[in-house]
Design a binder for these strands. Structure first.
Length: 647
RNA sequence: GCCGACGUAGCUCAGCUGGUAGAGCACUUCACUCGUAAUGAAGGGGUCCGGGGUUCGAAUCCCCGCGUCGGCUCCA
C-alpha cells in the first residue's frame, strides 16, 4: 500500500501498518518525535492501523505541527486531570473534557459538600505531574456499547452513561452504533473518540488556570458542573510566553485603563452603569460627534424620543411578553411604565405621528438615546456589558424595493467607520430564532434580502442559524477583546414585524396604503462597549483626535508658568484638550506623569521657548522632537484632528 | 440568574493560627526653581462592603445580603 507524504513522496507500507510504522519507515528521528498521524486531514493515533483503500495523504504530527499537536497534548492533559481528580476526590463524576482554543477544560460534578477552588489547583497539578512523569501510555480500546455502559453504570459515572446512550440514540438507523472507544492511561479509562499522543510524558508543561461553573451540555435547565480550565505546551518557555501574553492582556483591560486614565469608574450605587469623568466624557462625545457628522452626509436625521413609555407601547412591540424581566418597570397613577431598552418602538411611534408618502422614503431616524436593560447581575462586565448605555442607533423606514440598497449602504457606512479606527470587522448573519414573531414567509423574504445585500458587496460572513432578533434576521459586526473574547458591536437588522405590529403605512404612487420595511442599525453598537473595545485595542493610547487629554504644557520652572498658561489658552482656543502642569515639580517628574497618562503631546516651555514663542514638543513614547513655533504645532494638530488620523 | 473566588485609605496591596489597623503611590503644607520617565521633609486620611451571630474581645470565625472578578446561561 502506498501513501503520499506532504512533500509528495510516496511511502510504501505493508497492509496493517500503523502511523508509528509510517514514521519509523521515514526515519528514526521522526519515529521518536511522532505524536499522531494525519490521514487526509483527520488525525489518528499512532498505534492505529492506516486505512488501505484509495490514495491517502498522510502526515506525521510532531511537536512542530502547531495547533494540531497542541490540541493533542491538551486533550491528553485533560485526561490526566480527570484521572487525578478521581484519585483526589473520590465520588467525583466526570463529564466532558475537550481541548479548546488555548488549552482545555474538564467538567465534573463534585460529591455533595465538596468544592474545588483555585487554591486547590497546585495540589492537583502536583499529582498530575506524577502521572506525566510516569509516562503512562494511552491505549485505545473499542468495546461493545453494552460493555461500556455496564462499566460506567458500575462506577456510577452517570454522565458517561448518558453520553453513550445519546451516541446510540443519535446513530443513523442504517448504521447502529455497536462499539465506543475508550482510552486508558494508567488506571484511568475515559470514554473518548481520541486521538491522543502515545503517552502522558509528551506533556512537557501545563498549568491549571481557573475554576468556573458550567451547565451540563450548556443548558441552564441542567445541573451546574465544576469546570477547570488549563493549558499545556511542549516547553516551559512556551507556557511562560503564553502566560505573559495573558498578563499583558490583563494590563490592557479597559476597566483598569479607564480608572488609570481618569476616564470612568463604577460604583455600587449604580451597578452595571459607568460614571464618566470629564476625560472619559470627552472621548464619548468625540464618538457621538463622529456618528452625527457621518450620518448627516448619508441622509440620516436626528430625533429625540422619551425615556419612559406606557407599557402599551411595549405590548405592541412585543417586548412586554419577551423581555419584561430585563426591563426596568415602574408605575404612576395606576399606569405601568417602562424605561426604554431600545429606541425602535419610540421611532415607530414617531413615524405614526405623521402621514408619510412614498416620496418621503427612506426615512432614516437616528438617536443616541439612553437605554436601560436590566441585564442579569452575573453577566455585567465593565463597559462591555452594562445596564445603562447609548447606541449610535438609527432606524430606516423604506419600501421593499429600497431594502437592498439601504442594507448595502449601511454596510459600507460600517466599513468606513471601522476603517477610522483600524479595526477589522467580522460579519455574521443571524437567522430566525425559535422564539420569534411574524410569519415564516416574512422571515424567508427578510433573510434573502440580507443575503442579497451581502452578496452584492461581495463580503465574507459566517452564518449563525437561529441567532436572529425576535423580530427579524440580522447582520452583526463582531470584534475580539484583549483576552480573545468576542463581542457584538454593530448590527443591521431587517424587520417586517414592527411595521405590522405598529400598523405603519405610507401612501404609494397608487394612492393606496402600503407597509414600509424597517431596518434597525447601529455601527459602533453601544458607545460604552465601543470605547471599552477601543481602549483595549489601543492599549489605552487613543488616536490624537479622540484622546481624553491631547496636550500637556510643562513649564520648566515657576517663572515659565505665565507663558505656559498663554500656550494652554491658545491650544484650548484652537479646540485642543490641553492642561497646564504648573506644580513646583521637576520637569522629569512632570514628564514621567504625563507619559503614564499617555498624553499624545507634552509641550515643554522654558526660557528658550518663551523668548522664541515656541514650544518644545515631546511625543508620547517618541521622546523630544525639538522646539517649533506655536503656530506650527497648532497647524499640525489641526490636521490630525480634522483628518481623524489614527496616530 | 447559576458555580467558584474576592471585597482593608482615592489607587495597588500587607495584616500568620481572633488581642480595637500598616506600606508605597496619590493628596495637603513647607523648602527647592529644576531642560525630557520619580527633589526632600512634615502632615492629614480608614463605619476594615453592609447587617446579624459566636466570643471577654472579630478586619480575621459563622450566617444573610450587596458589589466585583473568572466562567456558564442569556444578550431585543
Amino acid at each position: 500500500m502506498e501513501y503520499v507524504l506532504p512533500n509528495d513522496d510516496r511511502l510504501s507500507l505493508p497492509d496493517g501498518a500503523t502511523g508509528a510504522d509510517a514514521a519509523a519507515a521515514i526515519g528514526p528521528g521522526l519515529a521518536r518525535a511522532a505524536l499522531a498521524v494525519k490521514v487526509d486531514g483527520v488525525t489518528y493515533d499512532l498505534a492505529r492501523e492506516l486505512p488501505t483503500d484509495g490514495e491517502r495523504r498522510i502526515e506525521i504530527i510532531t511537536e512542530r505541527s502547531g495547533d494540531d499537536a497542541l490540541a493533542l497534548i491538551r486533550h491528553d492533559a485533560a485526561h490526566v486531570f480527570a484521572e487525578t481528580m478521581l484519585e483526589l476526590y473520590p465520588g467525583v463524576q466526570i463529564a466532558i473534557g475537550p481541548p479548546i482554543q488555548n488549552g482545555f477544560y474538564y467538567d465534573l460534578e463534585l460529591p455533595a459538600g465538596v468544592s474545588v477552588g483555585e487554591e486547590d489547583l497546585p495540589a492537583i497539578e502536583a499529582r498530575m505531574r506524577e502521572h506525566i512523569a510516569a509516562d503512562e501510555r494511552f491505549v485505545r480500546e473499542d468495546v461493545p456499547v453494552a460493555v461500556a455502559l455496564d462499566r460506567y453504570r458500575a462506577e456510577g459515572q452517570s454522565y458517561k452513561v448518558e453520553l453513550i446512550e445519546d451516541l446510540v440514540k443519535n446513530a443513523p438507523a442504517d448504521a447502529p452504533l455497536e462499539t465506543v472507544s475508550l482510552y486508558r492511561n494508567g488506571d484511568f479509562v475515559d470514554l473518548c473518540r481520541g486521538p491522543h499522543a502515545p503517552s502522558t510524558g509528551r506533556i512537557r508543561a501545563f498549568k491549571l488556570q481557573s475554576v468556573a461553573g458550567a451547565y451540563w451540555r450548556g443548558d441552564s435547565h441542567n445541573k451546574m458542573l465544576t469546570r477547570v480550565y488549563g493549558t499545556a505546551f511542549f516547553s516551559a518557555k512556551d507556557l511562560d510566553v503564553h502566560l505573559e501574553r495573558l498578563e499583558l492582556a490583563r494590563r490592557n483591560d479597559h476597566r483598569k485603563l479607564g480608572r488609570e486614565l481618569g476616564m470612568f469608574g463604577f460604583s455600587e450605587t449604580a451597578p452595571g452603569s459607568a460614571f464618566w469623568f470629564p476625560a472619559g466624557t470627552a472621548v464619548y462625545n468625540e464618538l457621538v460627534r463622529l456618528s452625527r457628522e457621518m450620518g448627516l452626509t448619508r441622509g440620516y436625521t436626528e430625533v429625540k424620543t422619551p425615556q419612559l413609555f406606557d407599557s402599551s407601547l411595549w405590548k405592541t412591540s412585543g417586548h412586554w411578553d419577551k423581555y419584561r424581566e430585563e426591563m426596568f418597570v415602574t408605575e404612576s397613577e395606576d399606569r405601568q411604565l417602562a424605561i426604554k431598552p431600545m429606541n425602535c418602538p419610540g421611532h415607530c411611534q414617531l413615524y405614526l405621528m405623521q402621514a408619510h408618502s412614498y416620496r418621503d422614503l427612506p426615512i432614516r431616524y437616528s438617536e443616541p438615546g439612553l437605554l436601560h436593560r436590566n441585564e442579569p447581575s452575573g453577566t455585567l462586565h465593565g463597559l462591555l456589558r452594562a445596564r445603562h448605555f447609548a447606541q449610535d442607533d438609527a432606524h430606516i423606514f423604506c419600501t421593499e424595493d429600497q431594502i437592498q440598497d439601504e442594507v448595502a449602504a449601511v454596510l459600507r457606512f460600517a466599513f468606513e467607520t471601522y476603517g477610522l479606527f483600524g479595526l477589522d470587522l467580522r460579519l455574521e448573519l443571524s437567522t430566525r430564532p425559535d422564539q420569534r414573531i411574524g410569519s415564516d414567509e416574512l422571515w424567508d423574504r427578510s433573510e434573502l434580502a440580507l443575503e442579497n445585500a451581502l452578496a452584492s458587496l461581495g463580503l465574507e460572513y459566517t452564518v449563525n442559524p437561529g441567532d436572529g432578533a425576535f423580530y427579524g434576521p440580522k447582520i452583526d459586526i463582531h470584534m475580539t477583546d484583549s483576552l480573545g473574547r468576542s463581542w457584538q458591536l454593530g448590527t443591521c437588522q431587517l424587520d417586517y414585524n414592527f411595521p405590522e405590529r405598529f400598523d405603519l403605512t405610507y401612501t404609494g404612487a397608487d394612492n393606496a396604503a402600503h407597509r414600509p420595511v424597517m431596518i434597525h442599525r447601529a455601527l459602533m453598537g453601544s458607545y460604552e462597549r465601543f470605547i471599552g473595545i477601543l481602549l483595549e485595542h489601543f492599549g489605552g493610547q487613543l488616536p490624537f483626535w479622540m484622546a481624553p487629554l491631547q496636550a500637556l504644557v510643562l513649564p520648566i520652572s515657576d517663572r515659565h508658568n505665565a507663558y505656559g498658561e498663554s500656550v494652554r489658552e491658545r491650544l484650548v482656543a484652537a479646540g485642543v484638550r490641553a492642561e497646564l502642569d504648573d506644580r513646583s515639580e521637576s520637569v522629569a517628574r512632570k514628564i514621567r506623569e504625563g507619559e503614564l497618562r499617555k498624553v499624545p503631546f507634552m509641550l515643554i516651555v522654558g526660557d528658550r521657548e518663551q523668548q522664541a514663542g515656541e514650544v518644545g514638543v515631546r511625543e508620547h513614547r517618541g521622546g523630544d522632537k525639538g522646539s517649533v513655533p506655536i503656530e506650527d504645532f497648532l497647524a499640525m494638530v489641526h490636521d490630525l484632528i480634522t483628518s481623524r488620523s489614527l496616530t
